[in-house]
Every structure is written in C-alpha cells, then in structure tokens.
Design a protein around this nucleic acid. Sequence first.
DNA 1: CATCGAACCAACC
DNA 2: GGTTGGTTCGATG
Length: 120
Amino acid sequence: MLLYWDPEKNMVRKPKFDELADAAYTLLQLIPIGYVISYGELAKILGVNPRIVGRLMAINENPIVIPCHRVVYSSGELGGYSRGGAYVKKKLLVLEGVLSRDSERVSREKILSAKELYDP
DNA sequence: CATCGAACCAACC
DNA sequence: GGTTGGTTCGATG
C-alpha cells in the first residue's frame, strides 16, 4: 500500500486520487516496449482495487506520454480504452509487437508481474 | 471455454 | 444514497 506523509497532522495518510494517478503513470513509463501489465498487478502495487486502476487509466489526459494501452486484463484480453476504443488499443499493441494482427489476446509471458516491474 | 456473482471504491448524478 | 465503470477471481456447467 502506497502511503504519504501528512506534515500537518504529523502522520501517514492514504494517497489522494490524483496522487494515485501520478504514481500509476510513473509505473507505466517503466514498462519496456514489447511488454504489458494487468490492471490487477498495477493495483497490487498501488494498494487499490483493479477497478480503480481502470478509472485511473480512463482519466489519463496524455495518452502520448502515458502508455495506458499497455494495461490489459489478467486473462490477456485487452480490456477497454477510452481514447479511440479497443481498436486503437489493439493497433498500438500490434505496433509494439505484443500482439499479432489476428489475435485478440496477449500471451502470458508478455504480462509483467508486479514484482518484475517494481521491487520496493 | 462461457457465464455468474461478489468484492472493490472514486466519481457522478 | 444509488449507479457506474478501461477488473478479478472462484465456482459452476
């Protein structure tokens, strides 16, 4: 669980939503091209529910610098993509060599675990 | 493999 | 307060 220091109250506190978003986006930049991560694994690092990670991706204003298309279902299926739809997400992943043109699912070896991405 | 239901929680109304 | 999401996981057929 990600925690922040509150100097006013002199105690730790849970992250605010936008701080969570910042943390998530930073983690995304660590994903090498050719790999992806699942909503659940990201959620594990951030200490939130996978659904929340979905929301964090959805409010991303900067798909250019924030590669939120590299976040997929734990099953390997692609999941959603609000900027342009699932079609664009697939296109990007094919471009990065994660997915073959005729497939709808990323192979398991390309999905990084929480530990592989971030070792606290 | 397909469907189901529960758990999750910020945002929006 | 109730609904809605870029989910997940286990159970069941």
